[in-house]
Design a protein around this nucleic acid. Structure first.
Lengths: 211, 211
DNA sequence: GCCTACCTACCAATCGTTAGGTAGACTGTA
DNA sequence: TACAGTCTACCTAACGATTGGTAGGTAGGC
């Protein structure tokens, strides 16, 4: 509003994070941790407020539209970050499918766990129809987009036979979800072993030799 | 109480289904459909009662201990059925890993969808600690048991290199979960295609030839 | 004087749960 | 066959607790 030049673009519109106050940022971060950990329905606004050390009603200062808006902002942030992180990881990795997949897995492992299938199954039905659609689209684009490109590039290099890149992306995400789950259980194996096993499985299968 | 002989065992204790009235059976079936579809937290007892055409308080006649008991009975039934169904499917299939996996997938496809990862992520944290433990153990034993045996048998026949059968079972279940999810989305591909793609992926990977 | 970031106090709705009642089918006894 | 008693499978009515949400106030910094 301060600018008159119609061609001027606020610098912040070019970066991922628009103007968000420190206090709101803190709410978003804590909400992300809780929502991703236990799901939308299991976390009440009072739980969140208590974790923040404030009163529940104060949350409405930052998110006047309430719980669903807060959740959607959290989820949008999470998936936008994942899209950017996955693309950066792929870019930085050597141009081989295996390296790309390991890089993506490493990125996912470096972030707070997001249970994609679990979220889609339990959280979406509780949201409003528009909210569910928006979350679904955001999540789908963010998670499948980078992987789709990765698989197509591998196919172009002759490294993989790819009938349906989205299907492959979905399978990869399912495997990552399985690893996330496995680690929450009384697991023995370290994440790195699970990840490498999953990637090798996806690349070569479990049939010995080339039978 | 009618029996005095301490070695006597009620015949019904030997079979899977203990005496359950038709009315209770109906409640269990409807509850299963709703809980598996939307999760524990998203279904209220009033939702369930409405689906049954009765009043919500009447549910306490069949399940005096309340919602959690009902849910645990539902889940226990589901997983016991899946264990038996998966084992039967494997037994009936030719003794090759691919046939066994396809048989298991076919069985899972023939039943109302159960989103394993989603359930574990969203429902367990809401249950009491004992309830969560019991569900977790039941689910784990039922889903992993038959698959573990299948993979070990395949390894013994030289059909697969199996470092950790439980890990493989987990990956397979993750893939099945992914398929279940994929089918709920605006999907194009029929289940059979998804299943065969997943099984071939698990067997041979996506690397062309035997590179 | 205004803006930020909270606060207290309350609300209606909904949750799981409890208490107590009842129509109708079934069972044993006279 | 008639009656009494019991059991099944519901019902109505209410409960306290918890939920997301609203209204209005306020301390402190710019």
């Amino acid at each position: 509003m301060k600018q008159i030049d119609p061609y001027f673009v606020e610098p912040r519109e070019l970066v991922a994070e628009p103007e968000i106050s420190d206090a709101k940022q803190r709410v978003l971060e804590t909400a992300e941790r809780l929502f991703m950990e236990k799901g939308y329905a299991a976390i009440t606004l009072r739980d969140l407020a208590e974790a923040l050390g404030i009163r529940q009603a104060s949350l409405y200062y930052h998110f006047p539209a309430g719980k669903e808006q807060l959740y959607i902002e959290v989820v949008t942030r999470v998936f936008e970050r994942h899209r950017a992180g996955m693309e950066a990881a792929i870019k930085a990795a050597p141009p081989r499918l295996r390296d790309g997949l390991l890089a993506v897995a490493a990125w996912l492992g470096s972030q707070p766990a997001v249970n994609f299938l679990g979220m889609m199954h339990a959280d979406l039905p509780v949201l409003s129809r528009e909210g569910a659609q928006r979350v679904s689209r955001t999540a789908y684009a963010a998670m499948f987009g980078p992987l789709r490109k990765l698989f197509l590039a591998a196919q172009a290099r002759g490294e993989a036979r790819v009938d349906n890149p989205d299907l492959l992306a979905g399978f990869f995400i399912s495997l990552m979800d399985g690893i996330t789950f496995s680690l929450t259980q009384q697991s023995h194996l370290p994440r790195q072993v699970l990840v490498e096993t999953a990637v090798d499985l996806l690349l070569h299968g479990i049939t010995p030799q080339s039978q």
